[in-house]
Design a binder for these strands. Structure first.
Lengths: 409, 409
DNA sequence: ATTTAGTATGTTGGCACAACCAACTAAATC
DNA sequence: GATTTAGTTGGTTGTGCCAACATACTAAAT
């Protein structure tokens, strides 16, 4: 049903606690008086809220600020050691785990390439998580929760991965599996969505209420942050932006979705590798073949990036072409949703220095002028780690939303 | 800034009043006990809220329901005569005004074709509004407000039409202009957005939190209802969906936005007229030329509709072709946002019986299967009147959101 | 060095008002 | 009469608000 949420005093208290906590997070160091002035809450109310947050261990008093006349202010900031958080990113071909403090700063991390087989990937992930738990014990840091970012659709309330086409996984009860082993509170979220939350809490979107995280890698996915909250769609599928048609170029490799002309076939990782390959076939001078021989490795984005860094024209031009296609596809998205920002991240964001100028050029060309002029296209603060930090961020966001329900284990 | 809204008891009261009022609106007739059970509010709280709504005149007690054992329930419903609402739709080539009761039922309406000149359109609109005011006085109905739906971008807080490309209007302070003459509370909203709100309050989207109103006419615009609220984007431009590229057909009339292949060039009113024209040029048998002669009128959507109703194949096929293009463009939108519903409205929705089957077929073909299977494409309950009813709806919605601030004039 | 004024910070106790709860009355059926 | 359901009443708890207050500093005169 539609109209569920009733309000009572507890709700008011939680909302105001959360409000004050988020402001401290965003503007630390800050005084009680400042908080009162900015929020419109009464001074005494702020004092009461701050007292509760102090008791919960979520914030710290940290020195005084005696600028100007009057009594000096007691400054407040987040207590980063209130607890640690374990973030897990299940990638298509890797698993990454991080241990961070409450401010999302990485204290420990590890990454392994994943086995295609389901059971093996899972046990390997459990091992990494166990190592993170050991690390937290070494640091004498209680844990607040475990966040899990995964490709595919997620049932948030149950913590179940409903379906991940790239992993070929169906209905995996991730929360149950990880909660049993770690006895932590477990949160599961889609990888693009968690990356979007990472930018909101820790990255370049702290002040933004309307932006889109574009996750470029094997495909192109989107995390929508609209009206100050994630937008997941009716069934959690929102963000499938890779399959809009673009009129860029006459290449017409059919997309795995069955249509032709899908955006992601022109602008994903593989499209760049193909661009480079076809350029190499016509025997242009390029250092890429020798790099491949040197590393004994096939074409890859990091390798092409390395060539571009060395000034290789074929590499640079390939990135630039893909950037134009990226920007053309983005234009549709921008016209639809009129976001404040597009944040570019994921594996492909390694190549951002070579792609972003072309992306922005294409956006300016293809968007409606009033809308295109207002949007800014920026690089993710976390680049390829955005989803991993995002896994942490969804836990932090839950604590920020329900500060009284914090559990340190 | 980002974190504004603090909460206090007044806020709680308003939220719960609004909650109960909306439930009564949606489920009338309904008893206090039922409301308590459904909302989770305490019985005594519901009684108190209901009492206040009764005192405000917003609801009525209406008979008893004595089914089964126990004391019979006192049923409650919205009081439609709590006040009237004036809705104004500023179209590209017409102005429509309606007077409705609080349930959005039309008591009086009038429509005129608009003069292209700004001043004349405005005075003509004032005259129509005055007639509506007179009608309300005749019915002895106090007025709750005046809603204004207009194409283009709107500054909601100021009630200013920022820019309407089709009207060539800039920075028109509509609220100020209409409030001065009518002394009513005036609300201004974009036409597609208001149509979306109309379906939410009075139409086929009462139970939906995630849907998109597609307004097809001269162009194609969208009203996004996401997470239970209108989504307007950062600058109020969200919903410019007409300019996404589609790969439908080799016709390539450039769009007025400067790009080629824009969706709306394949699926708007004019595209249908062009389809019919080119069919008539190759001399197929069709009753359309004789209809044109009979009416002494050029090709138009109502005329083509008339031909289709008479079984004319050229008319039917033209609508169907445009429907395929409509569905193809919708697929991008659906993949992006995973809505529950697409609601098809606007002038072109006259032809819905001939277009919708093709639209649905194209959606099924082009959407990602998991997403496409979940969406339903439906006809607006108000068809070409959706924005006019929407103008009323934005006033009703404001009253529902802030019931204590109701003003009857 | 001392005093006095001025100013901003943060705390206290009383208040109004929200929803909640338990016990009640009201009005029907069995 | 017993039972069941609807709705009301009086009292409780827990909010944020407000005005007065204590606190702690700077500024500037003595």
């Amino acid at each position: 049903m539609e109209f569920k949420s009733t309000a009572d005093q507890a709700f008011v208290r939680e909302l105001n606690l959360s409000l004050v906590l988020r402001r401290i997070h965003n503007e630390a160091p800050v005084s009680r008086a400042q908080l009162a002035a900015e929020t419109g809450l009464n001074k005494s109310t702020v004092s009461s809220l701050v007292e509760e947050l102090l008791a919960l261990g979520l914030i710290h008093e940290t020195g005084q600020n005696s600028a100007g006349a009057g009594r000096p202010a007691t400054l407040l900031e987040i207590n980063p050691r209130v607890g640690g958080i374990v973030g897990v990113e299940l990638g298509v071909d890797f698993v990454a785990v991080a241990l961070t403090d409450f401010l999302g700063r990485i204290l420990w991390r590890k990454k392994t390439s994943a086995d295609p087989e389901f059971e093996k990937t899972l046990t390997e992930t459990f091992d990494l998580v166990q190592a993170a738990l050991d690390a937290s014990r070494g640091l004498d840091l209680p844990l607040l929760g475990l966040g899990l970012a995964t490709p595919g659709t997620v049932d948030l309330t149950e913590g179940v991965l409903v379906f991940a086409p790239n992993l070929h996984w169906h209905n995996v009860p991730l929360r149950k599996l990880f909660a049993e082993r770690t006895h932590l509170r477990v949160f599961v979220e889609n990888d693009s969505n968690s990356a979007a939350v990472a930018e909101h809490l820790f990255g370049i979107a702290r002040q933004s209420t309307d932006y889109i995280f574009v996750f470029a890698g094997v495909g192109i996915g989107g995390g929508f942050f609209l009206n100050g909250a994630l937008y997941r769609g009716k069934n959690g599928y929102a963000g499938e932006i890779g399959h809009s048609p673009i009129m860029a170029e006459p290449i017409q490799a059919p997309c795995h979705c069955g249509n032709r002309g899908c955006w992601e076939t022109y602008a994903n990782q593989n499209s760049i590798i193909q661009r480079v390959q076809s350029r190499l076939e016509v025997k242009r001078s390029s250092i890429i073949p020798s790099l491949m021989a040197e590393h004994g490795a096939p074409l890859s984005i990091p390798l092409i990036k390395q060539a571009a860094d060395a000034g290789d024209a074929e590499a640079i031009d390939s990135f630039s072409e893909a950037g134009l296609a990226m920007g053309q596809g983005l234009s549709t998205l921008i016209n639809f949703l009129n976001p404040e920002k597009i944040i570019f991240g994921g594996p492909l964001s390694l190549a951002a220095p070579y792609m972003l100028p072309a992306v922005i050029e294409a956006v300016n060309r293809h968007c409606l002028p009033e809308i295109g002029q207002k949007v800014s296209v920026e690089l993710s603060q976390f680049g390829p780690d955005a989803s991993l930090i995002g896994a942490v961020a969804i836990v932090v966001d839950d604590v920020m939303s329900h500060p009284t329900q914090i559990e340190r284990r």
